[in-house]
C-alpha cells in the first residue's frame, strides 16, 4: 500500500469538538488503510492561514485538506453565503435538513475551483451575550453589539441595536471596558472568552444562525491517491461530519452548564413581535442574497424553506 501523509489546516482550536472530530477522522483513515494514510493536524491557525486563504492553498495543493467557515468563502462563490442567512435554520433539525439540500451545490462550487468537499461541521448556534435579557424588539434599543458579517450587521440595526465591527482579539478588553455592550457569537465563542469574567450576565438564544464549516481537499492530491485510499478518505470525511455534529451538540450542554454555574442567565423565548421581525429580516436578507447569486439561489432558498 501507499504511504501517504496529508497536512490539515484549520483556524479552529484543537481543544474543541473540531479537534476531537479531526482525531476521529485520522483514526478512521489510519484504520481503513492499515496506517498507510496519515493526517498531520495543524489546528489553531498554526500555519498562519486564515479564512479564505484556505480556499486557494487547497486549490493549489499546497495543503491537502482544510476546514473553512462557509461564510468566509462568499468572496469566491456567493452560494456559500446561504448558510449564513439570518434565521434560515433556527433549530438543529433545520440545520441537518439544510445541509442535505445545500451539500450538492457546495460540492459543485468546490469542483469549479479544483477541490472536493468531503464533509462539514458546525459550531453551536450563535446567540447574544449581553448585560440584559434580549427577547423583545425593545431590548435591542441602543445596544452596542459586535457582529461579524454584513447579514448580522443589517439584521441587528433593523431591530434598533448599534452593530459594531471589532477584531476578535479586541473583544475581551472591549467588553470589560464598555466599548461594546454585547457580542453575537456561538456559545463556543462565549465560553472561549469566558464571558462571565467580562461582565456578561445574559445569554439570549434567538435562533439567529448556526456557523457551518466545510471540509475540502485538493482535487490534484485526491487524484494522486489509489481508488482504495480515495474511498477511505471519503469514509473518513463522513466520520468527521458525524463526529463533529455529535460532539458539537454535546458541547452545547457543557457550555450552558458552565454559563449557569458562573451566573449567566439563559433565555430562549423571543416574544412573538420579535419573531415576526426576524421573519421579515430573514426574507429581506434572502432576497438580497438571491440578487447576488441568481436563479440557483432562489431555488435553493425555496427548497430550504419548504423542507
Amino acid at each position: 500500500a501507499q504511504n501517504v501523509t496529508w497536512r490539515v489546516t484549520s483556524t479552529y482550536p484543537s481543544k474543541s469538538h473540531v479537534g476531537a472530530s479531526f482525531n476521529a477522522m485520522a483514526e478512521e483513515l489510519s484504520r481503513l488503510t492499515d496506517g498507510g494514510f496519515v493526517l498531520q493536524l495543524n489546528l489553531d491557525g498554526s500555519l498562519g492561514f486564515k479564512g479564505a486563504d484556505n480556499f486557494e492553498i487547497v486549490a493549489d495543493n499546497v495543503v491537502e485538506i482544510a476546514e473553512t467557515g462557509a461564510v468566509d468563502l462568499t468572496g469566491y462563490e456567493q452560494i456559500f453565503g446561504v448558510v449564513g442567512l439570518p434565521f434560515v435554520a433556527p433549530s438543529n433539525d433545520d440545520v441537518l435538513r439544510m445541509m442535505d439540500i445545500v451539500t450538492p451545490e457546495f460540492a459543485a462550487a468546490f469542483e469549479k475551483h479544483d477541490q472536493i468537499m468531503i464533509g462539514w461541521g458546525s459550531f453551536p448556534a450563535v446567540g447574544i451575550f449581553g448585560k440584559h435579557e434580549i427577547s423583545s424588539v425593545d431590548d435591542f434599543a441602543g445596544v452596542k453589539i459586535r457582529t461579524y458579517d454584513s447579514f448580522s450587521a443589517s439584521a441587528f440595526s433593523d431591530v434598533g441595536a448599534s452593530p459594531v465591527q471589532l477584531a476578535w482579539s479586541d473583544v475581551v478588553s472591549s467588553l470589560s471596558s464598555g466599548v461594546i455592550d454585547a457580542v453575537l457569537t456561538s456559545s463556543f465563542g462565549g465560553a472561549a472568552i469566558k464571558a462571565w469574567d467580562l461582565g456578561i450576565t445574559d445569554f439570549s438564544e434567538i435562533g439567529y444562525s448556526t456557523p457551518i464549516t466545510l471540509l475540502h481537499v485538493s482535487k490534484e492530491a485526491f487524484d494522486d491517491l489509489s481508488p482504495e485510499y480515495q474511498n477511505a478518505l471519503l469514509k473518513a470525511g463522513d466520520v468527521y461530519t458525524q463526529t463533529n455534529w455529535k460532539e458539537s451538540l454535546a458541547a452545547i450542554d457543557g457550555f450552558k452548564a458552565s454559563f449557569r454555574e458562573h451566573g449567566i442567565a439563559i433565555h430562549d423565548k423571543p416574544n412573538d413581535d420579535l419573531k415576526a421581525r426576524f421573519t421579515e429580516i430573514s426574507e429581506t436578507a434572502a432576497s438580497e442574497w438571491i440578487k447576488a447569486v441568481g436563479p440557483t439561489g432562489a431555488e435553493l432558498f425555496q427548497a430550504i424553506k419548504e423542507k
Binding site: K15, D44, S169, V172, S176, I193, K194, D197, L198
Partner: peptide, 19 residues
C-alpha cells in the same frame, strides 16, 4: 495587560484572558 500573547494563549489553552 493588555497583551496580544496572552489573548492567543488564553484562546488555545482555554484559560480566562482577564485572569
Amino acid at each position: 495587560p493588555p497583551s496580544i500573547a496572552m489573548i492567543v494563549y488564553g484562546v488555545i489553552a482555554d484559560v480566562s484572558i482577564v485572569r
